[in-house]
Amino acid sequence: MKINVMNMAVFSVMLALGTSCNQKSDQDDKIKALEDKIAQMETGNTAVTPVNAQATQAADPATLGAFGFPEMEYDFGTVKEGQVVEHLFKFTNNGQAPLVISNITASCGCTSPDWTKTPVKPGEEGFVKVVFNSANKSGAQAPTVSIQANTNPNVTRLRLKGTVTPKIAGAAAPVGPVKR
């Protein structure tokens, strides 16, 4: 009986030592991996390629249009609240391929764009019309439109800027409930 207990004790000690060796080996591997990462960070080589990254290549200039806007911003000055400001931004396609505007979005609901819907051939002109409705607006305003097209970069922004004065000068809007 004593021999069985002794054998069992020796077996348990050997099993514990064997397990701790495996754990130590795993720990050594993890420590080594962390040390490698630290070494990469210290050398400035921190670029890590994500697993879902796609290979990209530079766009061929022969497939791109290029905006040539004489102005990218229009200052409409000072207008009274409720006035509608309209400005036509003209552009020339300075690229090597027909320029196609796929979409234009406005920064707010007070601004609406219109644009040349057909491809603009190299050397030809197109337009982007921006309409700003100053109703319920006051103070400095700077609405923008973002143009998505086959250009580099593929998003171009145009901006209107100016000041809107309230309909009734000096009258502030009531704050809170009005007592009658």
Rank of each mutant, 00 (worst) to 15 (best):
T116L: 04
E86M: 02
T116Y: 04
Q57P: 01
G65M: 01
K121I: 11
Q40I: 11
P166A: 12
K129P: 00
F91T: 01
M72G: 10
A172V: 08
E42N: 08
V84P: 02
A58G: 14
S112V: 15
K137Q: 14
D114F: 09
A106K: 00
E73V: 13
E81D: 08
L34Y: 09
E35Y: 08
N94C: 09
T49F: 03
V48Q: 11
L99C: 07
K161F: 02
T92A: 01
I101M: 06
P122I: 06
P174R: 01
T151K: 03
E81L: 05
G170I: 10
A142I: 11
S107F: 00
V120D: 00
N150T: 02
V85Y: 02
D114K: 11
S112D: 13
A172R: 05
K80M: 10
N152Y: 10
G95F: 00
L64T: 10
M72P: 07
K80W: 05
S107H: 01
V51T: 14
E86T: 05
W115G: 04
V131H: 00
T49M: 06
P166Q: 11
T151L: 05
G95A: 01
E73Q: 13
F89G: 01
T43Y: 07
T46Y: 12
V79G: 00
T43K: 13
K167N: 13
G82E: 07
L158N: 04
A169N: 10
A66R: 08
Q141K: 10
G82W: 06
L158K: 03
Q83T: 14
N136A: 13
Q83D: 14
P50A: 13
A172G: 04
A53P: 02
L99N: 02
R159A: 13
F89K: 01
E71Y: 11
T118R: 11
A53T: 03
K90H: 15
D114C: 07
T144Q: 04
N103F: 08
G139E: 05
K167A: 14
P61K: 03
D60G: 03
S138D: 11
V100R: 04
A140Y: 09
T105Q: 06
T105F: 03
T144S: 05
N45A: 13
A135M: 12
K117F: 09
E86I: 01
S138T: 14
P98Q: 03
L88H: 15
P70Y: 05
G123T: 09
K117Q: 15
P122W: 03
A47S: 12
P50K: 12
A47F: 14
F76C: 09
N152K: 10
W115M: 09
K80Y: 08
N152G: 08
P98V: 02
V48L: 12
G95L: 00
P113Q: 00
P119L: 06
T118W: 09
P166W: 07
A106P: 00
F127R: 08
A169Y: 09
S112P: 07
I147R: 00
G123Q: 08
V51M: 12
N52P: 14
G77K: 05
A169L: 13
V175G: 07
F76E: 05
K80L: 11
N52T: 15
T151F: 03
N152C: 07
D75M: 06
E35D: 12
I38F: 08
C108G: 15
T49K: 07
A149C: 06
E71T: 14
